[in-house]
Design a protein around this nucleic acid. Sequence first.
RNA 1: UGUCUAAUGGUAUAAAGGCUAUUACGUCAGAUUUUGGUUCUGAAGAUCUUGGUUCGAUUCCAGGUUAGACAACCA
Length: 573
Amino acid sequence: MDEVQEKSLNFIEQIVEKNIEEGVNDGRIQTRFPPEPNGYLHIGHVKAICMDFGVAEKYNGICNLRFDDTNPVKEDVEYVDSITQDIHWLGFKWANIFYASDYFDKLYDLAIRFIKAGKAYVDEQTAEQIAEQKGTPTEPGKASPYRDRPVEENLRLFEAMQRGEIEEGKMVLRAKIDMANPNMHFRDPIMYRIITSHPHHRTGRKWNVYPMYDFAHGQSDYFEGVTHSICTLEFVVHRPLYDYFIDEMLKVSKPEEWGVPANSRPHQFEFNRLNITYTVMSKRKMLQLVKEGLVRGWDDPRMPTVCGLRRRGYTPSAIRSFIDKIGYTKVEGMIDLGLLEHTVREDLKETAPRVCAIFDPVRLVLNNYEGSETITAQNIDGIEALGTREMLFGKELWIERGDFMEDAPKDFFRLSPGGREVRLKNAYIIQATGCDKDADGNITTVYANVDLNSKSGTEGGNRKTKSTINWVECSSAVDAEARLYDRLFACEDPSAEEGDFRELLNPDSLKIVNCKVEGSLRNEMHAPVLKEGIAQENHYQFLKQGYFVVDPDTTADHLVFNRTASLKDNWKK
RNA sequence: UGUCUAAUGGUAUAAAGGCUAUUACGUCAGAUUUUGGUUCUGAAGAUCUUGGUUCGAUUCCAGGUUAGACAACCA
């Protein structure tokens, strides 16, 4: 047995192993993936998902899915459904589904305790006034005039807020911490605000006050028994507050009141978020692209969303392999889109049946061939297990316009009158004899002689040719729509550019072309196949063209394919 | 004149004080190939800086530089 090179642990896994060794949280591992249901999951979330679920699985712990649904203004069940579906499709299994809204009663109770302990107060200033008093990173803030309000009054007002007696925006509950703290998040952060304009997607109209992230997230982790609360780097500055609220909570309550073991305590760890060249990873910008119709929807194959990647033809294993390759650190970097493409090619090259599709067809007439015959072709050369298919061969074939040149340079390996011998994939060896042109000089038909003794698989077909070209027999060819995608943005880092990011879109990110595909695709299984309740897409490699996937727009008489990724092309002029 | 993070080939990563600084993508060259794909072989290419500790520093310490995060009634 060869020595398998052990993959080194990322820094989070190192911490986890150390914690297990030291018996932190009794060596128990529990994580959570905490999306806000206000948008679709994208590949950046997948990086977090792989971490959260991956660590739990690797160290025999559990990972829960928890929706961070503390802001009914932005959230919706539509997103809850898409998020659960995407995680399922990726192949991850959560132990439980929780919602931050499950803890609204507990959090309200806790807020009351904070008020009673003199750690929170109701502020009646406007958002602008509060912002103004916050100071700046280099200057301390000023205290609110309501900061030293008596406990009884705070209590009365907070309860009035929850009863719906106070207009939205008129009052907030703030933690009384330190207006001069160098960490801005400690300058009396808002714990609760009033939201009466929108019902909550789960609790309806029960609540008129909703907790802010900082007051909800850490406590939710605590209530659930999370041990490692893993998130991205932008939350580093929140960590002291995360710890503060838990510390203060433990001063005004006992763990058993929350049903939590006494020695259980969550800790937050942060890793670098994912950025990929030529795309944007911000929910706000994606939402804008969708709303303004700049893409066809959240699942547009150019989008970095999970459903977009899926429609593009990315497989769960390719996506997970990509995440595995990029790793987790604290360095904010930018991943080359090429790596993502590489992983999907690597995955599909072993599974996607090869078929012929001609994108820019020109008719090839074989001078000395009459009639027709059926040819059996391997789905993937060299992989017998993937089976075979039948192709009709005849006198007239569609070939790629680019496979013929009237005056060819030396390093052009394909058809040219009087030029080299070329093999028709899985069929005969031919040699071009000439062509017809229309009035504008465009080639309309190419003529070639067939070596009738050179059929593939026979002895006469054994000799080498410099090139093999693809073909589709004319009478049996099927018309299909191919959607050719390219990078969504024209520049590497759209987020870094000044001005309107919409002006940076790549105008050629989608080209729709008609092509001729081989007859075998007419009756292929284009409906997605169910596997463990999840629809699996049908992937193909169009020989020499790239990997394609059947698009859901496909109907019985109209085939639509999306190009997942092109093949690498080393031939340069 | 704030606090916090970070800094290794073009990109992303590894090396927990010790061999010629790892691997992948990308690039270049050659071979193989019934896909100009794949596969194989080879090559070029990196420790931000200045000190310190040490027999020895990518690693530990201090200063500097550079980059990023932080001033939503968002998460």
